[in-house]
């Protein structure tokens, strides 16, 4: 029953979020600020993780390909496919659900318990629209770029790992990443990342906005928000894969 109530409250929240902003200039400023807070400040962690994951995938694939019949260019191919299909979109989004999700919940939760949200409401400002819509726009617009960055750096990481360890030849790897290049897979990954970006902005916002109590409850809401955002990403990933690839 509680879950159904929460889903209902989440939908009602979205209804209030998607209203025309009261002042476009202020809204635009808020979107750019959120792009900086939620997107640009995540570039470092995304780049770091993608590069090393790409390296690890390439090394693991190389170590498991000890049959001489299997061509070595499969290492580049497998790394490319893994990075494009899952790691850049799903894995990176799970990381961002932790980093950005907890930030959103704790910042909104703190605003709630310190009456800053009440202050906005008393002024006649639609606080959900003012606080949450810029987050949604920022993440949905910016996260696909993070995913493209993750794909590129992941594939680059695989190449660097090969060169550094000598497990495979450079030209094999490059041949591997060139063969059977399918742009629709990148499109699939970008669509997924936009949907996940929406979840990363809205689910933690829901937990933060409706928090009741004090700092302890804000902390607890942050944990719940991260868990539920990851759960939602994993479930949505399954259905999107079914819908877009099958």
């Amino acid at each position: 029953m509680t879950y159904i109530k929460s889903i209902g409250a989440y939908v009602i929240m979205l209804k209030s979020v998607f209203r025309r902003p009261q002042k476009i200039k202020i809204f635009r400023e808020a979107v750019f600020k959120e792009i900086d807070d939620l997107g640009v400040k995540s570039i470092g962690i995304v780049a770091f993780i993608s590069f090393f994951i790409g390296g690890v995938v390439a090394i693991q694939t190389a170590l498991n390909l000890d049959d001489p019949i299997i061509p070595k260019d499969l290492i580049g191919f497998a790394t490319k496919r893994s990075m494009i299909l899952e790691f850049s979109s799903t894995f990176i989004m799970v990381i961002l659900a932790g980093k950005v999700g907890s930030y959103i919940t704790s910042s909104l939760g703190t605003m709630r318990v310190t009456e800053q949200i009440d202050a906005l409401e008393v002024m006649g400002i639609n606080s959900l629209n003012y606080l949450v819509l810029p987050k949604i726009i920022a993440t949905v617009l910016f996260y696909p770029f993070l995913v493209l960055l993750a794909m590129t750096l992941g594939i680059l990481g695989g190449w660097v790992a090969g060169v550094a360890t000598g497990l495979f030849e450079q030209h094999d790897y490059i041949t591997g990443i060139r063969i059977e290049f399918d742009p629709s897979l990148i499109r699939y990954s970008l669509i997924k990342s936009s949907v996940f970006a929406f979840l990363i902005a809205t689910v933690p916002s829901y937990f933060g906005y409706y928090v009741k109590g004090g700092s302890l409850e804000v902390g607890s809401a942050s944990t719940k928000a991260v868990v539920w955002t990851i759960v939602m990403i994993i479930i949505t990933n399954y259905f999107l894969t079914q819908m877009l690839l099958s």
């Binding site: 703190t110 605003m111 310190t114 009456e115 800053q116 009440d118 202050a119």
Partner: peptide, 9 residues
């Protein structure tokens, strides 16, 4: 004027 001032941090 809120009890805790409610200024935007």
């Amino acid at each position: 004027v809120f009890q805790g001032s409610a200024l935007f941090d």
